[in-house]
Amino acid sequence: DANVNMGGGGMDANMNMGGGSMGTPVDTNVRASRGGKAKLPHSGFSFNKPRGWVSRKVEEKFVFGHNTKPGMVIVVGNTAKSVQQIQQEAHVGIEVAEGVKFQLKGQPRPFGSNGLAVEFAGDVPGKGPGIAYTVNLVSPHGEGATFLMLVLERENSPELIKLVHSMAKSVRFFKPVPYPVDRVWKQKLDNRKLTYMHTTSSSGYDGSYTGSSSKEAIGLCAAGHFTYYSSSSFTVNAGEGVGSDVGSGSTAYGHGRGRGNGTWTVQNKGGKATLILKFYDGRVNQYHVTEDDKRRTYLNGTRYFRTSGNDGPNCN
């Protein structure tokens, strides 16, 4: 399996890049769909399943494949707040597998009054040039919909584009059903501060020196709000008295319309604890939370120090 990550509201899905063409994402030995509605309740939308295509639902996403036709279609929610946000993030590109990134091809095109169609292109290792075509829709309820079609360039066709358009046009939005709260992790993180710190340095024989440091601190208050701070710095000294350059930056977000910088919760998504930070300005950060046998805390696989008391968050 490979991770698909793209701009356009944090779309995140899993796909299989193995097999023929762009891969076989589903078991094509099962009976093809006769159509009908499919629903992603936690993402807050339903859509029409394409007739003749085989589907597989994995957690909060659908993956469609065909017995004889090339390509695959992934349907998943997104967190885009506006069409403008989708357009900005499209310029970042799309990661279709680890280390395999497609770049924006042409200009994004409006799709209805609340969406954007975006095409990306890149090379699939061992297979050749590939195309990723997406339709991203913004929902009035806060959780949007993304339809992602992946196919090798030589196998692309107007029929596949038409299929994606038809599925996207059938979308009906509703208020998302919340994931259950992970009460075990909620208790572990109440009134705790999670801190990440990283420092690197190197020196040369001529006295030159380079160094960098970064820090991120997330304060999680039991009342439901959080504080957030991040900083980074970079230092270069050319040695031999040439001089040095120092760069730095920090971010401490304003309080907006409530306490702290936003609200937080921990949800159980398919058996995985997910820390969700909702900033007052509309941004959403999500982290997969784990701990090892020594009770050390990890966010998305990166070690964070978990502290409390005098070393905990300022929740006043």
Rank of each mutant, 00 (worst) to 15 (best):
D1Y: 01
N3Y: 07
N5H: 13
M6D: 02
G10D: 04
N14P: 02
M15L: 12
N16C: 09
M17V: 09
G19S: 03
V30F: 13
V30A: 14
R31I: 08
A32S: 05
R34W: 02
K37F: 01
A38F: 06
K39V: 14
L40R: 06
S43A: 10
S46W: 12
N48F: 11
K49G: 13
P50N: 04
W53V: 00
E60M: 11
H66W: 11
K69E: 14
K69M: 08
K69L: 06
M72T: 13
V73T: 09
N78M: 08
A80N: 03
Q85R: 13
I86W: 09
Q88F: 05
A90G: 01
G106R: 00
G106N: 01
R109Q: 15
F111Q: 14
G115E: 04
L116H: 13
V118N: 06
V118K: 07
A121W: 03
V124W: 13
P129Y: 12
P129Q: 15
P129D: 11
N136V: 08
V138W: 05
G144Y: 04
L148A: 15
N156L: 08
V164H: 00
W185E: 02
K186H: 14
Q187V: 14
D190M: 15
T199P: 02
G211W: 12
S214A: 10
K215Q: 15
G219L: 05
G219D: 07
L220Y: 09
A223E: 08
Y228D: 11
G239I: 04
E240M: 15
G241N: 06
G241K: 04
G243E: 06
S244V: 05
D245L: 10
S248T: 06
T251F: 10
N261A: 07
G271K: 13
T274C: 06
I276V: 14
K278F: 01
F279T: 06
Y280M: 02
G282S: 14
V289K: 13
R295G: 07
R295T: 07
R296E: 08
L299K: 10
S308K: 08
N310S: 04
D311F: 13
